[in-house]
Write a protein that binds this DNA or RNA. Structure first.
Length: 284
DNA sequence: TCATCATGGCTAA
DNA sequence: TAGCCCTGATGAC
């Protein structure tokens, strides 16, 4: 269930279990079999994430590039690997069945492919800055946003503009900054973008630590408001994401939803008022 | 038990 | 814009 924080956790989990070790690589499902046989028995160097992309480095300048897509999973666990269940595209195993063994099973991924250094760089070339990376340059994202008439709600999801933000962080960061999702990128002030970027850095880093997406401020947490905690598949406390028709935690208005470039969008009509440019007619 | 939907994104058309 | 990847949670029967 992947936004950028999920991929960072995976990269850290893979590095922690396998970095520096000789690993068994297989493809019980078969679709990665040829590449797996090339990597099998070689040394895994480490793993890193950039946005929603995961790169696992092996000796010999080989990279496994993984993109989980909408419903891919990469399950990491300690102990000897059990018989594979379901369609396991790629399995990593270390420790050869010993007490210190670990394994990882990849299922349902959009991408699982073996890349050279150059091919990896070509993937990175298409990605904007990732708020979770210390080497990120938010100025690159601002250059795109400030020149675009596309809605900020679409730009935040565009991985070429900003890498790692998905539908949840998109909805939540717009709410926290009281910004309507359809506001054109080129009407934002730089200070507004910089505040949202800084917020994403903080929120996503918290997501890496906790493994879930929590975006509500302390005064809006369930205990503070005397309300039931959220119970669904990702479990985090949020303001608007998938809260259609429920009361806004801040103003009580009904949360609205719509579809923008094929994805569900959520916002509070009162907390995130429609942007009116100075050129707009006062009659509408 | 079955149908639907989802925190993505590529590709063909 | 639709299909696809082919998982897994959820809710309707």
């Amino acid at each position: 269930m992947p936004e950028g924080h999920t991929l960072r956790r995976l990269a850290d989990g893979i590095s922690g279990r396998f970095a520096g070790q000789t690993v068994a690589v297989s493809s019980p499902q078969g679709r990665f079999a040829d590449s797996a046989s090339v990597l099998d028995g070689t040394r895994l160097i480490d793993a890193e994430s950039w946005g929603k992309h995961l790169f696992v480095a092996f000796e010999g300048e080989r990279w496994v590039h993984v993109h989980l897509g909408l419903y891919g999973t990469f399950e990491l666990a300690d102990g000897p690997a059990p018989p594979p269940v379901g369609q396991v595209r790629m399995r990593l195993e270390s420790g050869n069945g010993s007490a210190r063994a670990s394994y990882g099973d990849l299922r349902g991924a959009t991408a699982c492919e073996l890349l050279t250094d150059g091919q990896r760089l070509a993937v990175l070339d298409r990605l904007g800055p990732d708020p979770l990376r210390e080497d990120a340059d938010p100025g690159r994202a601002w250059a795109r946003i400030s020149r675009s008439r596309a809605p900020i709600g679409a730009l935040l999801m565009d991985q070429q503009v900003l890498a790692g933000v998905g539908n949840v962080y998109r909805a939540e960061v717009l709410f926290r900054h009281r910004m309507h999702p359809l506001r054109p990128g080129n009407t934002l002030r730089r200070s507004q973008f910089e505040a949202m970027w800084a917020d994403l850095v903080t929120l996503m880093a918290a997501g890496v630590r906790s493994g879930r997406i929590d975006t509500v401020r302390p005064e809006h947490e369930p205990e503070a408001m005397g309300r039931a905690p959220r119970q669904d598949d990702h479990g985090g406390e949020v303001y608007v994401y998938r809260r259609t028709d429920q009361a806004c935690l801040v103003c009580g208005s009904r949360v609205r939803t719509d579809v923008l470039v094929g994805r569900n969008l959520f916002w509070c009509p009162r907390c995130q008022p429609r942007f009116r440019s100075r050129a707009a007619s006062p009659s509408r």
